[in-house]
Computed example of a mutant assay.
Amino acid sequence: MDYEQFRARYQQVFDSIESQPAAHFAPSLAQLRAMAAAIQSPKDRRRAENQIATIGDVLSYDDEPPLSPAMVNAVRAHDRGSADAGTPAERIARAESATIEIGRIADTAGPAEQAAILDLNEPLYMLIMSLESAESR
């Protein structure tokens, strides 16, 4: 993943902040975190992580009710699955495990929330594909 791809997606998310409630952005933030983790350059990766933190700060001012317990658990599972520690094989296994856990959480959530929870799997799939591609080189 290169920084410019991340930057384009980041800008889309950032530009839409005023038009959506904070809870709407959980999947987008998860996707941005996964994209940032896949950036090769440490300098660009740090810059991307700082930009994600900026979105988090902006969203923290939103007075929306807190996320549901199901969404909180799904975001935590996503964060564990997208952690950048370990070998590519370990990271792939962790991401695959997180997608399964997120699926189970979505199954227990209400219908209105299921799609948003399942959207957290998309960046994990992207991470898995990126790591598998890197391993095959």
Rank of each mutant, 00 (worst) to 15 (best):
N73W: 03
A74T: 09
A74W: 05
V75Y: 00
R76T: 14
A77F: 04
A77Q: 10
A77H: 00
H78T: 06
H78V: 09
H78R: 06
D79F: 10
R80I: 14
R80M: 11
R80W: 12
G81A: 01
G81L: 03
S82W: 09
S82Y: 04
A83Y: 04
A83W: 08
A83K: 12
A83N: 11
A83E: 10
D84Y: 09
D84W: 10
D84V: 11
D84Q: 12
D84L: 15
D84E: 14
A85M: 10
A85Y: 13
T87L: 05
T87W: 07
A89M: 05
A89G: 01
A89F: 13
E90S: 04
E90T: 01
E90Y: 07
E90M: 09
E90C: 01
R91H: 01
R91I: 11
I92C: 01
I92W: 11
I92R: 07
A93S: 13
A93I: 04
A93E: 15
R94N: 10
A95T: 07
A95E: 06
E96K: 12
S97M: 08
S97N: 12
S97Y: 05
A98Y: 02
A98C: 04
A98G: 00
A98H: 06
T99Y: 03
T99R: 11
T99Q: 08
T99L: 10
I100P: 00
I100T: 15
E101L: 14
E101D: 09
E101T: 15
E101G: 01
E101A: 11
G103P: 02
G103T: 14
G103L: 14
R104P: 00
R104I: 03
I105Q: 03
I105G: 00
A106S: 06
A106T: 02
D107S: 11
D107V: 05
A109E: 05
G110T: 08
P111F: 04
A112I: 12
A112Q: 13
E113F: 07
E113G: 04
Q114F: 10
A115E: 13
A115R: 15
A115S: 09
A115N: 10
A116Q: 13
A116E: 13
I117C: 03
I117G: 00
I117V: 06
I117Q: 06
I117D: 06
L118Y: 01
L118F: 02
L118K: 06
D119P: 00
D119G: 01
